[in-house]
């Protein structure tokens, strides 16, 4: 089976990110895009959208992600009504936003809020690749920054699940500056001794990879997620040589020392819960400090 995983990788690493769109299963039966294993969609959902055949992790919507992590009934959302404007007056941008809002039932590419994991309070941000490829414009940057500020205010850990193609072109340099905005907030969070966990899911690239996604106290990723700074095609054009099959996968990053671990979706809540416990109990036992 391990061997099987490696064979499949080749295909996965070259999937254009646009494929994610058709990724979320809708019919009664769903055929795995990787191993062609056919599963009852209901079963697949119960299995946290992971293929029983090859362990392929389907993309998760923000709603599904939150349901898979947060104790039932404990989640309350922040800034749900914040929406993007069109600062550069890009043609069709507002229409595209509107159509993504209808499609995803969310107002922007990140959902933030507070909730509990195994009874412990957390502040959470979950990016959603169905909305403008999870790209970061002013709203994504502002919502994440506000969530970090809430984590500081409520003295909770901050956890982010990233899924993003990078900065949002249609907001130009304002998008770029969201990298700096979220970073100044993360620095403040860190200086208060608060925990920050980053979990990179497919795909995490460009400006998101090159800002908050990479600077967690712990950096994790889901299996086979595409993670990288520059796009594969651009690199191939620049260096004019073929890249390894597993290039920019979570496993590639792990091998090169860029991740603390690759975590299977079925172990995610348990792992986060354990880490939270280590930090929470540490704080309680040592007079509010995480360090002795």
């Amino acid at each position: 089976m391990i061997k099987g995983l490696f064979v499949k990788k080749k295909k996965y690493a070259t999937i254009p990110t646009g494929k994610v769109k058709q990724d979320v299963p809708e019919g009664i039966m769903t055929k795995c895009p990787e191993c062609k294993h056919i599963m009852v969609t209901k079963e697949l959902r119960k299995n946290l959208l992971v293929c029983q055949g090859c362990q392929y992790h389907y993309s998760m919507s923000s709603q599904e992600r939150i349901a898979s992590l947060i104790d039932e009934g404990t989640f309350s959302e922040y800034d749900a009504n914040m929406i993007s404007e069109n600062p550069l007056e890009f043609p069709d941008y507002l229409e595209k936003l509107e159509s993504d809002r209808k499609k995803t039932k969310i107002n922007e590419a990140v959902v933030t809020g507070k909730g509990q994991i195994n009874g412990m309070d957390v502040t959470l941000a979950v990016m959603d690749s169905r909305f403008r490829m999870g790209s970061m414009g002013s709203v994504v940057g502002e919502k994440i920054t506000r969530a970090i500020e809430k984590a500081i205010e409520n003295q909770t850990p901050f956890i982010i699940f990233t899924a993003s193609g990078g900065a949002r072109m249609q907001e130009g340099v304002l998008s770029l500056m969201q990298m700096a905005k979220t970073s100044v907030a993360l620095k403040r969070l860190s200086d208060k001794g608060l925990l920050f966990i980053s979990v990179m899911t497919h795909p995490t690239t460009g400006g998101v990879s090159a800002s908050f996604a990479s600077v967690g106290d712990y950096n994790f990723a889901e299996p086979r997620a595409l993670i990288g700074f520059a796009g594969r095609r651009i690199i191939e054009q620049t260096i004019r040589q073929e890249l390894p099959e597993d290039f920019q996968t979570a496993e590639f990053l792990l091998k090169h020392g860029q991740l603390d671990g690759v975590i299977h979706r079925s172990d995610m809540k348990k792992t986060l819960g354990t880490l939270l416990k280590i930090h929470t109990e540490g704080r309680l036992k040592h007079g509010g400090r995480t360090r002795i």
Partner: peptide, 25 residues
């Protein structure tokens, strides 16, 4: 930042991200 294989292997994203956070402080 250079888009290359070696740059990705050595953590181009992390290097940039780290600077943003550290410069903030």
């Amino acid at each position: 930042a250079f888009p290359g294989k070696a740059a990705e292997e050595r953590g181009q994203s992390e290097a940039i991200a780290r600077n943003l956070v550290e410069m903030a402080g």
